[in-house]
């Protein structure tokens, strides 16, 4: 952008607060017995809804089902006002308090923070502007960029996300917190044709705790590189304890094929690019698998090779 502009009255975007938004906000608030929380939830819901209706008018889709602001247990335990834009990330839509104070959560991953001034008497809200990131818990309203620039911000992020996908670092610790990088979908969805068997056997009665197991799958986009061969890379992650994470990696054929291509190799490399584990498919293998264990923060990569073509996925535990 070659010009900058503060959130003056001229730059604010006034957006309607619809009956549907009010109804949802009231319904959410009724679910909370404590008046302070009910009011917080009501205002956060309105702020999120107003931004959602703005984005949807522009044709930008949002996903409430995975937004914590729509989750009653998250509303109860935290001051949440997030809105997920699929393929881009999580926005924060904060209602501005009467004194012009806008408080934002720190230490959470957000792709932008939008300040929303609710004027409920007039039945409308002002989208005052946004900032891509914050350093302080108080959002300086004079630092806001105008909403005119907001679509460009989202498009740049989406471009970035697409460009990074090949070399993206996948953070498994984030998986254990319930966040997944784009491209990693539920293993059951991608591999609907397989009956799923867990990679880790529950150790019968001696299991000290029920570990949280996460499994996600990624279609390795080998179309261009390996002809018609498409494979699914499936990772199953289990937190054994504070310092150890169990990882199961499998490769499956996709597109209704029964067998992996012969000679498909998968290698696990550590942070120094030393090969730690390797497996190779024979003529009629349904899948390949490797198991290993690592510490939180430890990097590794998985290299999938067929002939002279190879794809690397980078991870950090």
């Amino acid at each position: 952008m070659t010009y900058s502009q503060s959130a003056t009255d001229a730059a604010r975007l006034i957006w309607p607060i619809t009956q549907q938004g009010k109804r949802i906000a009231q319904q959410f608030a009724r679910d909370h017995g404590l008046p302070d929380i009910a009011e917080r939830v009501r205002r956060n819901t309105l702020a999120v809804w107003v931004l959602l209706e703005f984005l949807e008018a522009l044709g930008i889709l949002t996903d409430l089902a995975t937004s914590d602001s729509w989750n009653p247990a998250m509303q109860l335990t935290e001051d949440v006002a997030d809105l997920v834009v699929p393929g881009v990330g999580r926005l924060e839509c904060r209602p501005v308090e009467e004194a012009g104070v806008c408080t934002v959560p720190l230490g959470v991953e957000r792709i932008g923070y939008v300040a929303v001034a609710l004027d409920e008497a007039a039945g409308e809200a002002s989208l005052l502007g946004f900032v891509p990131e914050v350093a302080l818990a108080q959002l300086g309203l004079d630092r806001l960029q105008p909403m005119d620039d907001f679509p460009t911000h989202l498009h740049q992020l989406r471009q970035g996300a697409l460009g990074q996908e090949a070399s993206q670092l996948t953070r498994l610790s984030r998986w254990l917190e319930g966040y997944f990088e784009s491209g990693w979908q539920s293993a059951e969805d991608l591999l609907a044709q397989y009956l799923w068997t867990p990679a880790f056997r529950q150790g019968g009665q001696s299991a000290p705790q029920t570990p949280l197991q996460i499994k996600r799958a990624k279609q390795l986009d080998l179309g261009l590189k390996l002809g018609a061969e498409q494979v699914a890379l499936v990772l199953e992650v289990e937190q054994e304890n504070e310092s150890a994470v169990n990882i199961g990696l499998r490769l499956y054929p996709l597109e209704g094929r029964l067998y992996l291509p012969e000679g498909l190799t998968v290698k696990i490399l550590d942070g120094e690019n030393t090969v730690c584990l390797t497996a190779q498919s024979r003529s009629a293998d349904n899948y390949l698998q490797l198991y290993f264990r690592g510490h939180p923060g430890e990097p590794f990569s998985a290299q999938v090779t067929l002939g002279d073509v190879s794809i690397v996925e980078n991870f950090i535990i």
Binding site: Q27, F28, R30, D31, A65, D68, N71, P72, A73, M74, Q75, L76, T77, S173, L176, E177, G178, L212, Q239, E242
Partner: peptide, 23 residues
Amino acid sequence: SFYRRQCKPRLREFGRAEGHISS
């Protein structure tokens, strides 16, 4: 950190499945 990794995801999962009472 323990709360973020072990408690919050379970709470989130519960909330997601539970939803809001609809009026």
